[in-house]
Computed example of a mutant assay.
Amino acid sequence: MKPVYIVGTCDTKAAELRYAADCVAATGVPVVLVDISTTQSDAAVDVAPAMVAAHHPRGAGAVLGLTDRGEAVTAMAEALRRFLLTRTDIGAVLGLGGGGNTAMVTAAMRALPVGVPKLMVSTMASGNVAPYVGPTDIMMMHAVADVAGLNAITRVVIGNAAHAAAGMARHAVAAASGERPAVGLTMFGVTTPAVTEIRRLLGDDWECFVFHATGTGGQCFEKLIESGLIRAALDITTTEVADLLFGGVLACTEDRFGAVIRSRIPWVGAVGAVDMVNFGGRETVPARHAARNLYVHNAQVTLMRTTPEENAATGAWIVDRVNRMQGPARLMLPLKGVSALDAPGKPFHDPVADQALFDAIRAGFAPAPNRRLIEVDAHINDQAFAEACAAAFRDIATGV
């Protein structure tokens, strides 16, 4: 049975961490107590701060002894991330603490594969937890009272968390062993017909996982690639890049496509919905965009049509990342429109802007034995485009 790793700062929370460890041990599940204190700590633990800090790229000296607490916390978070990634015996990770502890522990948790149990008892868990959870399966449990001493409240909350972590470690869920390999697809409302048809064409042979291209959705898509749970990608909807470059609210990170580059899985991508930048309600659109082509999708979502210059920049950004892919890759261009709104008679139909996108991709694309640019004389939601994507995918994903 793999142990529960209990992680926290024993210089301030030794009693609480030890109590959690005792609760886990009482269930018969082994425990590894990890101290990530950035100041002097003499607590009896299984993994001392210096052992964790030694995993920092610049060594323990870059973590311990720093006078600036913010710098020390940031450095320890990086060291803890690297430390946990070296462990092959993690049954679950349980963290306890306030703001500093939560930042350190969850940063390391986010680096672990999806499926490894992760539970954070935190005073920060009753607010916006997106910065802590990100695209992962971290469970946030509100501490209610501060993790600052054992009392009638903290004993129950910490004890419940410890038993939950012990239960997850004891009853580990076996990895899925479906007969069909997993493929991830990215989709937006305006590319739904394309993705739906691709799923129909491939569904007998592949288990399809669809991700809503909302910024977080793209991060989840790539996190599962990093975790080895998705073995190929049909990245049809790359709209998050336009939001990143031009201030939209559904932006990807600078590491978009990074998981594919690092993992070298088969990838078929397209420029779905890069004709738009997403904002909230109409009143949230910045004043500088008041004269732009805006489309109110609903009360919470307003879309802004990208210009030729913005499309060219988006195309250049995407093709730069595609050129770094060493695995089998196909980039598909739907020459008659990139979203449901980008078609004759629709509000975002703009052949000049589309041409700027396509020209930038053509100019920047670096062909290679593993990489091809495929142009399809069809709209992204046409049957012909879905069939071309499915054919390109079968060509590179055979045998996965």
Score class of each variant (00 low, 15 high):
20 A>H: 00
39 T>C: 02
265 I>Y: 11
235 D>F: 14
185 L>K: 02
227 S>W: 11
213 A>W: 05
101 N>E: 02
285 V>I: 13
29 V>K: 10
112 L>C: 04
48 A>V: 00
117 P>D: 00
382 D>H: 15
46 D>V: 04
172 A>Y: 03
268 V>C: 14
38 T>C: 12
255 D>L: 12
19 Y>C: 06
360 A>K: 08
172 A>G: 12
323 N>P: 14
298 N>A: 05
216 T>N: 00
129 V>N: 08
324 R>Y: 08
166 A>T: 01
43 A>L: 07
397 A>S: 05
295 Y>R: 05
355 Q>H: 15
66 L>V: 10
135 P>G: 13
73 V>S: 15
62 A>P: 02
165 A>T: 07
163 H>N: 14
339 S>K: 14
33 L>H: 01
204 D>M: 14
307 T>E: 09
207 E>H: 15
223 K>E: 12
187 M>L: 13
391 A>S: 11
105 V>D: 13
74 T>M: 15
202 L>A: 12
231 R>S: 14
152 A>Y: 14
35 D>Q: 07
81 R>P: 10
331 L>N: 02
384 A>F: 05
387 E>L: 08
31 V>Y: 04
211 F>C: 14
105 V>F: 01
72 A>H: 03
241 V>H: 01
354 D>K: 15
274 V>N: 06
109 M>S: 03
159 G>I: 03
390 A>Y: 06
253 T>Y: 02
222 E>A: 08
273 A>Q: 05
157 V>N: 06
207 E>S: 13
303 L>P: 13
372 R>M: 07
243 D>Y: 14
191 T>C: 01
25 A>N: 01
232 A>R: 14
140 M>Q: 10
223 K>M: 04
111 A>S: 03
370 N>D: 09
147 V>G: 03
191 T>L: 02
192 T>H: 11
347 P>V: 02
353 A>C: 15
114 V>E: 05
102 T>G: 04
159 G>Y: 05
112 L>E: 07
58 R>F: 12
